[in-house]
Design a protein around this nucleic acid. Structure first.
Lengths: 225, 225
DNA sequence: ACATTAATTCATGATATACTGAAATAATGA
DNA sequence: TCATTATTTCAGTATATCATGAATTAATGT
């Protein structure tokens, strides 16, 4: 007897196995921000290219990601929004269940000065009213793949050198990949240490879009004249 | 440098590893129906008691389940609704992504005659109007842990012998653990082969409760006089 | 055709995980 | 106290998975 229930749960476990590796979760997390070629994924996840390629192979074998060729590069992307939501659900359960994750998030991921994150609704309203500068501190490829309309793109690594691009008077709201990303917290810390008024939005672009707010795509950051 | 990002994703992967085993997924799926002691879990999941105990130990080590002692028995339960939703999200992604799962679901889990599953809203309305008998075909402990108010409890294994308890005229809507459970499909098949009008509801009690409909608890099935 | 760049494949050794069955622990009731 | 029942622990063996680095394949542009 090949029990269909056993086979069904073997199928479920196949997906579970994919989620059982730090490296694959890093890759899936990166892909939540948009499609990327192998070399970019390897670099941003801190993996060797062959190792990343092997993990991507697993992800493709289970149809969690799809690929597209453009010239010499092969771009990987998540197969569906469902996959992104699964990864997020896993992260949220880990945050809720594991004391070590809770401590990490409160130690490294919650600068006490930056605690008051602004909500998506509030940010949207204040953007409409022209009250704030929205700052996207993710890598340029992620900004290009999708960002909050009107947001200025300054990757976290370039922030110190490009502070003069930001107007001194206006309040700045920084955002990054989402609640488990460090970038926006680091950004707020640095902006404040230079005397700028800054806070952050906890959510990422996908959350923003899920909530029904508009998303813009393309390379060029809005000019601040 | 002990990279906090690495540590964070190691935490995520710890939860992923828990989901990487058929046996643990079976246990989590059973626990989605309510708390159960080890022996029941082992039997219903088709595992030896020591094996089930070891897996439950893993689940408890990651705080995905909690325990309560009652006399000699230790009851396990899911730590939070978030865990149930994570498991369900995993199942849905597997259903969407894996051809083998899709085929299993369509081959074994979708009797062509029983295709037209009634939705939760429709069922609720028809229950209010007294049009249908609702039939819960899960094991008695799951019925006792929570069921649709007014539902009759006849475990799938006892259905053939207890057909006379069901009125011949009225339409019957059977439900079970949810979309990846066989019971309600088998029930509809058997009821129809005995000339009864029957269909099924796809969702389980947790879905029913999530949608805001009421849930009853307790052992005794409604008497059909 | 050839050199270049991007990505994949594969063999390998190291590590981790699974299930089994025997033994130990823990609470209960006679 | 002792036997009973429920559960856990543990050693041992089999199996699976991981990261590495060398070799290979694939597309591009000269």
């Amino acid at each position: 007897m090949t029990n269909p229930k056993i086979e069904l749960f073997d199928g479920f476990a196949r997906i579970g196995k994919v989620l059982a590796s730090r490296s694959r979760l890093l890759l899936l997390d990166l892909l939540s921000q948009g499609e990327k070629p192998v070399e970019t994924l390897a670099e941003q996840a801190g993996l060797s290219v062959p190792n990343a390629s092997n993990h991507l192979r697993e992800l493709r074998a289970t149809s969690l990601v799809r690929t597209r060729r453009d010239g010499q590069q092969i771009y990987y992307r998540l197969a569906s929004p469902r996959v992104r939501k699964l990864v997020r659900s896993l992260q949220d359960v880990a945050h809720e269940s594991l004391a070590e994750v809770r401590e990490l998030v409160s130690d490294f991921y919650q600068d006490p000065d930056a605690l008051e994150a602004v909500g998506m609704e509030t940010l949207n309203r204040r953007v409409q009213e022209g009250e704030v500068i929205v700052l996207d501190v993710r890598p340029p490829d992620e900004y290009a793949a999708g960002h909050i309309p009107g947001a200025v793109s300054i990757p976290i690594g370039e922030l110190e050198q490009r502070l003069q691009e930001l107007p001194a008077g206006q309040e700045i709201v920084a955002y990054c990949r989402g609640p488990y990303c460090l970038f926006s917290r680091q950004a707020v810390e640095r902006l404040r240490s230079h005397g700028l008024r800054a806070c952050r939005m906890e959510e990422g672009v996908a959350d923003w879009e899920d909530r029904g707010f508009p998303v813009a795509a393309g390379e060029s950051s809005r000019s601040l004249e």
